[in-house]
Simulated scan of single mutants.
Amino acid sequence: MTAETPDVWLPFPAEEIDGLPASFRYRHWDGEETFPADPADCVFYVAPYMKSEAVTLRPLAAMPRLRVVQTLTAGVDAFVGAPGGLAGLPPGVRLCNARGVHEASTAELALTLTLASLRGIPGMVRGQDREEWRGGFYDALADKSVLIIGYGAIGAAIEDRLAPFECERVARVARTARTTAHGPVHALADLPRLLPAADVVILSTPLTDGTRGLVDAGFLGRMKDGALLVNVARGPVVDTGSLVRELETGRLRAALDVTDPEPLPSGHPLWHAPGVLITPHVGGSSSAFAPRAKRLVARQLRRFADGEPVENTVLITE
């Protein structure tokens, strides 16, 4: 390697990733305080996974040669929504997401949260802790109407996994209307008409200016009595105060893998609101993550080394 060999920053040791091209010098950095090398030599930055925005964004301002930012998350709000974000980077830098990495794992959790909430599993676990036999009738997913809001790759994967559960109806909503192999996708503007018919509402939408606070008091008020809200998207998609108020009446239930704020602080009223199940943002952090993430990184770097367009480009700096 010569001094002109460009650097690639990886959150995994390079020796753990098969198929990396030999045309780069690989630097392992997973958010540590000390950088592994001069950021000015980096042309391809794979951002650390499950680190704070401050950590993830910290080296960007010192990377004038950067050409690609590859996230290991499905959403890219840490880059485009945080102060600074991609601002100040040279033109032509491509921001790529991790499409193909998280769909299966996140869809699994969406179904887990839905089934656990409907069948009363949290109460049964508490009953087991107290040696209480909590029999009775509980809701099934069968014959329910499900509304998926956010019909990208994760939303489609959720619908695929709903198929065996004999739902009465699955409706799909995205930013704009379109037709898919599964059926029509409605626009966000159709939500007031669709919400009152849904027994289960699953959020899998990206966090954008258009979806921040989407689930507000008006949205929740249109949901039918006894309906279940499942959030595997981002916490700020839901107005937490409005949700807590609805939960405290007992009219709605919720199953949340993400919250706002996050992590949810001790003493927050959402922890103990009636009818809520909370998991600590683990939709993507399963055994499926590392092998899929490493395959994506190797594939992207081979394309970059060969001068081919990288995949999953969300935006390009101007």
Rank of each mutant, 00 (worst) to 15 (best):
A54S: 15
T56W: 03
V76R: 03
T73M: 09
P59F: 00
S52R: 13
R67M: 11
R67P: 07
A78D: 13
A62W: 00
T73V: 04
L60Q: 07
V68S: 10
S52K: 13
A82Q: 07
A62P: 06
V69W: 00
P59M: 01
D77W: 12
V55R: 03
S52I: 02
P83Q: 02
R65T: 01
A78T: 15
A61E: 05
G75A: 07
L72D: 10
T73Y: 09
P59V: 01
L60T: 04
G75P: 14
S52W: 08
F79S: 02
A78G: 09
A74H: 14
A82T: 05
P64A: 07
R65W: 02
L60A: 08
T56P: 08
G84T: 00
R65E: 05
P59Q: 04
A74G: 15
M63Q: 12
L66Q: 04
R58L: 08
L66P: 04
E53Q: 15
V55H: 07
T73I: 01
R65A: 12
P59D: 00
V68M: 11
T56E: 13
A78N: 13
L72M: 14
V69L: 04
T73F: 12
V76A: 10
R58V: 06
K51M: 13
V76W: 09
T73E: 12
V55I: 15
G84A: 04
T71K: 02
F79V: 01
K51Y: 08
P83I: 00
R65S: 09
V69A: 01
P64H: 08
L60K: 03
